[in-house]
Design a protein around this nucleic acid. Sequence first.
RNA 1: GGGUCGUUAACUCAGUAGGUAGAGUAUCGGCCUUUUAAGCCGAGAGUCGCAGGUUCGAAUCCUGCACGACCCA
Length: 498
Amino acid sequence: MSSTEAKSSLLKQRFEKAEKLEKQGINLFPNTFRKKHDIIEIKEKYKSLSNEELEKVEEQSVIAGRLMAVRSFGKATFAHIQDGSDRIQIFLQQKELGADKYKFFKKLDIGDIIGVIGKPFLTKTGELTLNVSDFELVTKSLRPLPEKFHGLKDVEARYRQRYVDLIVNPKVREIFRTRTKILKLIRQYLDERGFMEVETPMMQVIPGGATAKPFETYHNALGMKLYLRIAPELYLKRLLVGGFERVYEINRNFRNEGISTQHNPEFTMLEFYMAYADYNDLFKITEDMFSYLAQEILGSQKVNYQGNEIDLTPPWNKLSFYESLEKIGGLSKDQYQDIEKAKNLVRELGENVKEYESLGKIQTKLFDLLVEPKLIQPHFIYHYPTEVSPLSRRNDKDPSITDRFELFITGREMANAFSELNDPRDQKKRFEEQVKEKAKGEEEAHFMDQDYVRALEYGMPPAAGEGIGIDRLVMLFTDSPSIREVILFPLLKPEKDK
RNA sequence: GGGUCGUUAACUCAGUAGGUAGAGUAUCGGCCUUUUAAGCCGAGAGUCGCAGGUUCGAAUCCUGCACGACCCA
């Protein structure tokens, strides 16, 4: 849809009206009006005053906002205007403004941005309202807004034209305010504990730190293929080697995979690393951080998510990976320890199995199918098989498993955490195994990263690290069923150019 | 990648024996000084997602495509 051609009659009408106003010498896009107050300030300031008290108010309120609704009578008009903070009713009278100015107001459209000067009073129904002594057109709106009562419902339009969604759907504004608040609280939480926020490359020569397919790009001047990062992990741990003992990064990761209610190709991840700590410390920090967020955001440890009440009060359930296969997945040791039996089981459950897939990989598939969807309340699942945890420290007693856990809430993975592998010799072997898997056809296997091994050879202090998916966290706290509801501009295919 | 559903006015939606489209909001004109989904009277507004096919005739039936939603892989 082009803005200059093939206009609907409604659009044409607005463009013509705009031209007419301009011919009368009215600037449709002036940048001279300066508001003095946010609407919410006005509302807070006067909310408890009676009409007698309001009459004594000397100060003029000077606000600006978008015209959202108009109820017009002959010589008086009620309207609502909305700014970034709130919405307020205004009252305009011909006898107050003069016939010409009043007539001009009646020519305005819903969607126009206006500046308003007036004093507060209470209407018959007790609504705080500004009695307008003067107003100005600040920005002309040339496109009609969606209907005032139903708002914009079409999901495709809501995502493509998020700006319209934000104008007309207050709940959507609220979700993104909450998102920002969550990010701020997380930063505050980590900063208070001595963590340093850092930025590491988004474009990497070797995409490491996760099991995922990367996006490729190309640097022209260097004549070199680059990847968008799938995780910042290996860079953050290089910083541990460098001597920063507590670091974190909150930023985008990119994974070249399918799109669903749980996945957007770019998504936001928190990763934090602390030296001289292990995964036992991370259980506590995770519980503490989530319950802190719940308290600050919702004022409660109970979160309602899509009809389920999630109780975030620590401590949370803990089960080892194998225990969970047995107790929640209902499997016997025999069923998940014999690779052929396990593979057959996965196939019976309707998922594909590739020849080269390791027992650990098959076991995680069983977990994904039989256990994960049942983990509605918070559950830590710990001691993952070493073969599916190439960056995690082995358990001291049983080297076939790692000191790693994942957190699940509402049947979804919310966090992945482990004691960090800091033995460069073991790390090198683990990379070599990944390279072998890649050669067998496992597209998502890790790449060899020689420099990372070299860094470990200098000595990385013992450490623990964790990644938390921010989008899913925001979904939980805003009761959003789809990741697209918590990403301002989710990826969509381009609309057809007519 | 597969399945199901959707796409009609700016927005929210109706629209079956297949007979060239309708409501509310919004817009335009008129009346109206306490409304808040204001009210009353009148008017204009559509490539029925796109392209084919069947038919005397298609928003409606068939095929393909595009975009989206949900589910599955």
